[in-house]
Design a protein around this nucleic acid. Structure first.
Lengths: 213, 213
DNA sequence: TTTTTCATCGTACAGCGGTACTATGAAAAT
DNA sequence: ATTTTCATAGTACCGCTGTACGATGAAAAA
C-alpha cells in the first residue's frame, strides 16, 4: 500500500468544512464543490471519502451530535465540584444557547438539519430524534436526583420539566439566531426560569460556591 | 382590455400551492415548476404573476404572517366572553402548536423561513423579526393587564414572560414536527407552565365558564 | 372592423449540481 | 523490477432550475 492516509481524519476535515459553509451561507449552499473548496481539496476527494452527498450529510449530522456531547462533557467537567442541580442545568442550557461564534454555527446547522428532518423521511429523522431524546433523558435524571435531594419540588414532573427546559432553550436559541433577541437577553430568561425551578434555600454562610450574581 | 383576471386572487392561489409543496416536501423542494404543477397552471403563469422566485418567496412569507394573524383573531374571537388572561394565552399558544394538518404545514413552512433568515441577509430577515416581535408585544400587553387585574404575580417581568412563552411554544412545536413528541404532550407541558403562571384563585362556584377538562 | 391589450402557452438557453469514468504518480508488496 | 494498491486529479455527462423570448387567441377599445 502507498501513502496510507488516515481516512477518519480526512473525513472530519471535510465535515468541518461543511459546517463552516453551512454556518456562513446556510445548508442550502452546501454543495460538494463548495465544501471541497472550503476544505482546500478537489471535488473528487470529497467524493472519494464520502461516496455520495447523502452520506456526507449523514456523517456530518452524526459528528455534530458527538461534538455537542463532547462540549457538554467538557463544560460540565469544569464545574466546581459540589455541583448543584441548578448550576449543572444552567451550564447545560448555557452551552445550548448560541453565545459565541462556534456555538452559533453549531446551533444554526443543527436547526437546519431539524428542518430537513421534518420532511425527509429516513435520512435525517432517525439520528435526529435520538440526540434530543437522550439529552432529555439525562436532564430528567438530574431533575429527579434534585427531587430526591430536596432541591426541586417533588410536585413537578421531571420528564416534562426536562422537555420544557430543552424546548425553551431551543426556542430561545432560534430567536437569537434570527436576530430577534440577544444571547444575554435569552440567558436572562433562562436564568429567571431556573430560579423559579430551584427556589433559593435559607442562605447558609458556610457555602460560598455557587454564588452566581 | 380582454379577460381581466383578479391578480390578487391568482397570487394567493399560487402562494397556497407553494405552501402545500413546502409543507409536503420541504422548502428546498419549492421550485417554480413544482409550484406551477401544484397550482394547476403552467410555469409561465407563475412567472407572470411573480416576476422572480425571490418575489414569490417574499410574498409567501407576507401571506403566512397575515394568515397567522387571521387565525389568531378567529380563535380569540371565539372565546367565551369573560376572557381570563389564562384562557386567552392558552388559546394563543394552542394555536401556535402544530396540532392539525393545516397548523402543521404553517409551522413547518414558517420554521423553514426562519432557518433561511439566519443566513440570507435582507430577503427574509426584515419581515421575519417583525412578526414575532409584534406577537411578543401583544402577549406582554396581555400579561401586564393580567398583572393589573391581580391574575399574574407582579414580581414577574411581563416582557420576559412573553418571550418565554413564545420561545417555549416554538421549541415545543419544533419537537412535535420532528416527531420527537406528540402535540398532546406538548400541550400538557404548556398547560403546566400556564398553571404555574396563573395560580388558581379560591374556587368560586358561581363561575362555570373557563372549565377546561 | 381593425387594433390594442391581456392572459396564457411552448420552448429555449445558460448555469449549476451530483455522479461517473478514466488517468497518473507513488509507495508498498511481490 | 514488476505489479498491485491507494490517494489524488481532470473532465465529462445528464438533469434540473431560474429566466427570457417569442407566439397565440380572445376580448375590449378604436
Amino acid at each position: 500500500m502507498p501513502k496510507r492516509v488516515d481516512h477518519a481524519q480526512r473525513r472530519v476535515h471535510v465535515i468541518d468544512a461543511l459546517v463552516r459553509v453551512a454556518a456562513a451561507e446556510g445548508l442550502h449552499a452546501v454543495t460538494l464543490r463548495a465544501v471541497a473548496a472550503e476544505a482546500g481539496m478537489s471535488l473528487n476527494l470529497v467524493q472519494y471519502y464520502f461516496q455520495t452527498k447523502a452520506h456526507l450529510l449523514h456523517a456530518a449530522l452524526e459528528r455534530l451530535e458527538q461534538q455537542s456531547h463532547a462540549r457538554w462533557s467538557a463544560r460540565l467537567g469544569g464545574l466546581p465540584l459540589p455541583v448543584t442541580a441548578h448550576a449543572f442545568i444552567e451550564a447545560f442550557l448555557t452551552e445550548a444557547l448560541p453565545t459565541d461564534e462556534a456555538s452559533r454555527a453549531f446551533h444554526l446547522v443543527w436547526t437546519s438539519y431539524a428542518v430537513l428532518a421534518m420532511t425527509d423521511p429516513d435520512l435525517a429523522a432517525q439520528p435526529f430524534a435520538a440526540g434530543p431524546d437522550r439529552l432529555e433523558g439525562q436532564l430528567a435524571a438530574v431533575l429527579r436526583q434534585a427531587q430526591r435531594e430536596g432541591a426541586l419540588d417533588r410536585q413537578r414532573n421531571a420528564a416534562n420539566e426536562a422537555a420544557h427546559l430543552l424546548s425553551l432553550s431551543h426556542g430561545l436559541g432560534t430567536s437569537v439566531l434570527v436576530g430577534q433577541r440577544t444571547a444575554d437577553s435569552a440567558m436572562e430568561i433562562l436564568r429567571a426560569h431556573l430560579e423559579r425551578l430551584f427556589p433559593v434555600p435559607a442562605p447558609s454562610p458556610e457555602s460560598a460556591v455557587g454564588q452566581a450574581h
